[in-house]
């Protein structure tokens, strides 16, 4: 986080772990062979394997794995609550770096990356593209100042579901410090559209452990509301409510086959991402296999 330029920061993080750890959910025409299929009427004769036809006098269509057509949308929460940080950096900076790192990483693999930032409503939307300058625009949008008086998880997800029609990867980066009544329904709607959804929850260690020891007025960073809290009295209840809230999130994600990861801002980002990618790689192929069986383009 000591590097001020977000793009450089993302590049440094990406170069910290290996690339190419995922597969495309689509079949395409690339160098990696997938399978042969018998020609049926209506197939494009361009994809016939003419060499095999010469040898066997039968028409087969040759299929390859498509490695370049991943469409990833990064949905990043930039509400005021993300501005909290008990360390040298805030949750927002951590989330921005995470999003930028993923975007840079995907762009290097020629994948299309889009961006949705939101607080109480969607503030920026960049469709998933792979073209020169797109990454720069995406990073500029990430550097927008924090705003909004509350965090609304419903509207951005609904808007992404309406806007993004092609299947792809949706990565939600947020602290999820908001009521999750509709979260389950909206995430399920995304999943039903065929999107693969990853939830990355960014939290400050002080929010996790509530490590305050002095009575004070606590000010809500979003609404400005003041509440007198004595941590000695309130910690137990806080931790209990926090755990209950997280369990509800995990339960929802688990039910929808959504990957849920909690990033603590005191953990180095490259390590956190490496953990995430490793876990994803372990499960990725199975998911790809299942997703690839649903058909090609």
């Amino acid at each position: 986080m000591r590097i001020k330029n977000l793009q450089w920061r993302a590049r440094v993080v990406v170069e910290g772990f290996c690339s190419g750890l995922h597969r495309s959910p689509y079949h395409g025409f690339s160098v990696e062979f997938s399978e042969y299929r018998a020609y049926v009427a209506g197939d494009d004769p361009r994809f016939l394997d003419w060499r095999l036809y010469a040898r066997t006098d039968r028409c087969y269509i040759k299929r390859f794995e498509d490695e370049t057509n991943l469409r990833c949308h990064l949905v990043v929460d930039l509400s005021r609550s993300m501005g909290y940080g008990s360390l040298a950096h805030s949750k927002a900076e951590y989330a921005r770096t995470t999003a930028a790192t993923l975007a840079y990483y995907l762009a290097r693999q020629r994948d299309c990356v889009g961006l949705v930032t939101f607080d109480e409503q969607v503030t920026d939307y960049l469709p998933a593209r792979f073209r020169p300058g797109h990454l720069h625009r995406l990073i500029m949008a990430l550097e927008r100042a924090l705003g909004g008086k509350k965090t609304d998880l419903t509207t951005p997800i609904e808007q992404v579901a309406r806007t993004v029609t092609k299947r792809g990867l949706i990565v939600l980066i947020s602290d999820l410090l908001a009521p999750i009544d509709t979260l389950r329904r909206n995430l399920g709607y995304l999943r039903s559209r065929g999107h693969e959804v990853v939830v990355m929850r960014v939290l400050d260690p002080a929010e996790v452990a509530f490590s305050f020891d002095r009575a004070a007025y606590f000010e809500d960073m979003e609404s400005g509301r003041l509440v007198y809290v004595d941590p000695r009295d309130a910690r137990e209840q806080y931790l209990s409510r926090f755990a209950e809230h997280e369990q509800e999130i995990q339960a929802a994600c688990s039910a929808l086959a959504i990957d849920y990861f909690r990033f603590s801002t005191d953990r180095p980002l490259e390590m956190a991402l490496l953990d995430y990618l490793s876990a994803r790689t372990r499960r990725g192929r199975r998911t790809v296999r299942r997703g690839g069986a649903q058909g090609g383009r």
Binding site: S81, A178, F242
Partner: peptide, 10 residues
């Protein structure tokens, strides 16, 4: 006075 991300658990 302490600023805090959200008071929803407090």
């Amino acid at each position: 006075r302490e600023s805090f991300g959200s008071l929803m658990f407090l």
